[in-house]
């Protein structure tokens, strides 16, 4: 069967209130197929609520959504047959071993053959480094080991959509690194939707990002667009000896949106050039400036925001307005 949808997850006006408190408000989300989708937000932003709504664990107060073009309310079980899910705080049956937990999980998806299931379980145990503890009851597992088991059980069914709620929580730096590597490897097979606080990780692997705060979507789009900032591509220059005439020439270019000049002291000027066509800027901006014989360029770079800056700006701006 060939899937015809381009977005694995689509929500429209998805809302959820708990006892009159709005946890999620009119969420319109579109998660492209085969993307690694970073779902960001501070604690209580509504990330886990969104995930639970998509899995049918809770029911929306308003709006709706589709996963694999199936309705999250009517087709929940069918949706879950194609999803792998790692909860924020994984909880399993403590009397079972890791191997039994994975075999039990696989049993929801596969009838057999038993040999193939056993092989898949072993593969998952090795993938997350739990093969030596595979046959111990998980009652004594540490938080990190439970997290690893959670990651293994989420993948045991070769999911088309992997939903990871804070996958790197409880993991040491090596474990985090392994998770990111794994996500990169799985990208060609599956769509990964994951929530996290660790912004560095998102910047490393995600191609699409959504930022949520107080149950409202603040931003959604490709990470490149987000990192470019809201004013579009911006180039910064630190210059000495550039005349107003050259500045006027720069302003008159069709690919230049704006030019802001500030005094950087010691005779230096700091230019901030917002452009519509970054390639034209890369090819022509320096040439224009250096057409002034006295001009010296001390620094030239394209401004690139860190995700943390963008995130903090958005969240703090949103909170400030409340």
């Amino acid at each position: 069967m060939t899937d015809t949808y381009s977005h694995v997850i689509e929500t429209r006006g998805l809302s959820k209130a708990f006892n009159g408190v709005q946890a999620l408000q009119n969420l319109d989300l579109r998660v492209p197929k085969n993307s690694i989708f970073g779902f960001l937000g501070p604690n209580g932003a509504g990330k886990t609520t969104t995930i639970k709504l998509m899995l049918g664990l809770i029911q929306p107060s308003g709006g709706g959504g589709r996963v694999f073009d199936m309705d999250i309310l009517k087709d929940s079980v069918e949706i879950r047959s194609r999803v792998g899910y790692l909860p924020q705080e994984p909880r399993f049956y403590e009397h079972l071993s890791a191997r039994q937990t994975l075999t039990f999980t696989a049993g929801f998806f596969f009838k057999g053959p038993q040999k193939a299931i056993a092989d898949r379980v072993q593969e998952m145990l090795e993938l997350v480094g739990l093969e030596e503890k595979a046959d111990r009851a998980i009652k004594g597992f540490s938080g990190g080991e439970l997290q690893r088991l959670g990651i293994a059980q989420a993948q045991v069914n070769y999911p088309d959509l992997l939903i990871l709620d804070e996958p790197a929580a409880s993991l040491d730096p090596m474990g985090r690194h392994d998770i990111l590597e794994l996500m990169e490897r799985l990208r060609k097979y599956t769509t990964i939707f994951y929530s996290t606080h660790i912004l560095n990780d998102v910047q490393k692997v995600s191609d699409t990002v959504a930022i949520l705060n107080r149950g409202e979507l603040l931003s959604l789009g490709p990470i490149e667009a987000l990192l470019a900032g809201s004013e579009g591509p911006v180039f910064t220059l630190t210059l000495v000896g550039v005349s107003e005439e050259i500045a006027q020439q720069v302003r008159s270019q069709t690919w230049v949106n704006s030019l802001q000049i500030t005094d950087a002291g010691d005779g230096k000027a700091s230019w901030m050039v917002a452009v519509s066509d970054p390639q034209a800027a890369e090819g022509q901006l320096l040439r224009l400036v250096l057409s002034e014989p006295e001009a010296r360029v001390l620094d030239f770079r394209r401004r690139r925001y860190e995700l943390e800056d963008v995130f903090m700006q958005m969240v703090e701006g949103d909170d400030g307005g409340k």
Binding site: K52, L57, V77, R80, V83, P87, E89, R91, T105, F108
Partner: peptide, 14 residues
């Protein structure tokens, strides 16, 4: 209360 119901119901289980 333990969260195992939420986990197991995230699988294809009605």
């Amino acid at each position: 209360l333990s969260g195992t119901a939420a986990w197991v119901l995230s699988k294809p289980l009605s």
